[in-house]
Simulated assay, not measured.
Amino acid sequence: MNKCDYHHLNHVKEQHKSKKTLWFTLIITLFFTVMEIVGGFLSDSLALLSDSAHMISDVLALGMSMTAIYMATRNPNKKYTFGFLRFEIIASFINGLALAVIALGIFIEGIKRVMNPREVDLQLMLIIASIGLLVNIILTIVLSRSLKEEENLNIKSALWHFLGDLLSSVGIIISAILIYFTGLSILDPLISMIIGGIIFTGGAKIIHESYLILMESVPEKFDLDSVRHDIRTVEGVVDVHEMHLWAVTTDHYSLTAHVFIREDSQPLSTISTINRLLKDKYGLKHSTIQIEHPAINDHGLYGKEMLLKKQAYSS
């Protein structure tokens, strides 16, 4: 960092719990993915093969999530002044897209197999699905507990992956049992298509959440009008404008605002009071407040109205 940035807030995110959770999840997932791919080809079950494709995406998603967590620990520099926190959101967006694409692929293949049903090895299909159910229950519990301790969109996207896997395993088991008793092989692709719909829903949710952050929209937990109102209540403040509130990544927020103050106010004291308000009430630790005077800073008709207000206050 340059000397001028000595007091720059470090945009760094240490996520020890998330890191351990993802390493454990990645190792278990990689092992079971190999098992499910082999089992899917041997049993010729679309339900197993579609789930194994989803598991491959899990491995890639977890690898990307791990990269995002390590990137988030790197300090800002003169080029990346916000650090590398945003990579977490980029990774989540890609993970969400992967879920959606896989779901569409499952749906297309399901339609093909509905038109041309194929025999499946029910015993092998049931054994692997049962193992998968146990694995996915364990991983879902582990990820859920981690998410409660550390808010992380990557963990949330991974959780959606494994909720999809868990439902896939349940669907495959139900499919195998129904095929055994009815002899209807068409149930295998039908169950797969239902699973694909659930996976697509999870992917769409992750895409939406990460899209909002990438577009720097106001986070849902904040009411911009309420924040603006509270700033206006600070002693000496006449009005607030050019206000922006966005998330750099999950749980890391920034705010900027221009503030008109009375001439008899102390600018440094006013800024300090506003920053303290934002931190104590809203948890906003990274805020940039710019003090302005409507007679000096041209704001057109709006500035003239503020100037009249200031004159009214003075009189």
Score class of each variant (00 low, 15 high):
residue 2 N to A: 15
residue 4 C to Q: 15
residue 6 Y to T: 14
residue 7 H to P: 06
residue 19 K to S: 14
residue 20 K to Q: 11
residue 21 T to S: 13
residue 23 W to M: 07
residue 23 W to R: 08
residue 24 F to L: 15
residue 28 I to G: 03
residue 29 T to Y: 09
residue 30 L to W: 01
residue 38 V to Q: 05
residue 40 G to W: 02
residue 42 L to S: 04
residue 43 S to V: 01
residue 47 A to V: 08
residue 50 S to V: 09
residue 53 A to K: 09
residue 57 S to C: 13
residue 57 S to W: 04
residue 57 S to Q: 05
residue 57 S to V: 09
residue 59 V to W: 10
residue 61 A to S: 13
residue 67 T to A: 10
residue 75 N to Y: 08
residue 76 P to Q: 04
residue 76 P to H: 09
residue 77 N to L: 12
residue 78 K to E: 15
residue 81 T to K: 14
residue 82 F to L: 15
residue 86 R to P: 00
residue 92 S to C: 10
residue 93 F to T: 00
residue 94 I to A: 01
residue 97 L to R: 10
residue 98 A to V: 15
residue 101 V to S: 12
residue 102 I to S: 13
residue 107 F to Y: 15
residue 114 V to D: 04
residue 117 P to D: 01
residue 120 V to H: 11
residue 121 D to N: 13
residue 123 Q to S: 14
residue 125 M to T: 11
residue 128 I to R: 05
residue 128 I to V: 14
residue 130 S to D: 02
residue 142 V to Y: 07
residue 145 R to C: 11
residue 146 S to A: 15
residue 149 E to V: 10
residue 150 E to W: 05
residue 153 L to P: 02
residue 153 L to C: 05
residue 156 K to V: 02
residue 158 A to Q: 02
residue 165 D to C: 11
residue 167 L to P: 07
residue 167 L to G: 11
residue 168 S to I: 06
residue 168 S to Q: 03
residue 168 S to W: 04
residue 168 S to T: 07
residue 170 V to H: 04
residue 170 V to Y: 04
residue 171 G to L: 07
residue 173 I to T: 08
residue 173 I to H: 11
residue 175 S to N: 02
residue 176 A to D: 01
residue 177 I to F: 14
residue 177 I to K: 12
residue 177 I to S: 12
residue 178 L to Y: 03
residue 179 I to A: 05
residue 182 T to F: 03
residue 183 G to T: 02
residue 185 S to L: 09
residue 186 I to Y: 08
residue 187 L to V: 08
residue 191 I to F: 11
residue 192 S to L: 07
residue 195 I to Q: 00
residue 198 I to F: 11
residue 198 I to A: 10
residue 201 T to K: 13
residue 201 T to F: 12
residue 203 G to C: 02
residue 207 I to C: 04
residue 210 S to W: 00
residue 211 Y to M: 14
residue 213 I to S: 03
residue 216 E to F: 11
residue 217 S to Q: 08
residue 219 P to C: 13
residue 220 E to G: 13
residue 222 F to A: 02
residue 222 F to W: 03
residue 222 F to T: 01
residue 232 R to P: 04
residue 232 R to T: 14
residue 233 T to E: 15
residue 234 V to D: 07
residue 235 E to G: 09
residue 236 G to V: 04
residue 238 V to G: 03
residue 241 H to L: 08
residue 242 E to Q: 14
residue 243 M to P: 05
residue 246 W to P: 00
residue 247 A to E: 01
residue 248 V to Q: 00
residue 249 T to M: 00
residue 249 T to V: 01
residue 249 T to K: 00
residue 252 H to P: 00
residue 252 H to C: 08
residue 253 Y to V: 08
residue 256 T to F: 00
residue 257 A to N: 01
residue 259 V to D: 02
residue 263 E to D: 11
residue 263 E to V: 05
residue 268 L to S: 10
residue 275 N to L: 07
residue 277 L to E: 01
residue 277 L to G: 01
residue 283 G to E: 04
residue 285 K to E: 10
residue 287 S to Y: 01
residue 288 T to Q: 06
residue 289 I to C: 02
residue 290 Q to S: 04
residue 290 Q to G: 04
residue 294 P to L: 06
residue 294 P to Y: 03
residue 296 I to T: 10
residue 297 N to Y: 06
residue 299 H to S: 06
residue 299 H to W: 06
residue 301 L to G: 01
residue 303 G to S: 11
residue 304 K to W: 07
residue 305 E to A: 14
residue 309 K to R: 14
residue 309 K to I: 14
residue 313 Y to I: 14
residue 313 Y to P: 10
residue 313 Y to E: 13
residue 314 S to G: 02
residue 315 S to G: 13
residue 315 S to A: 14
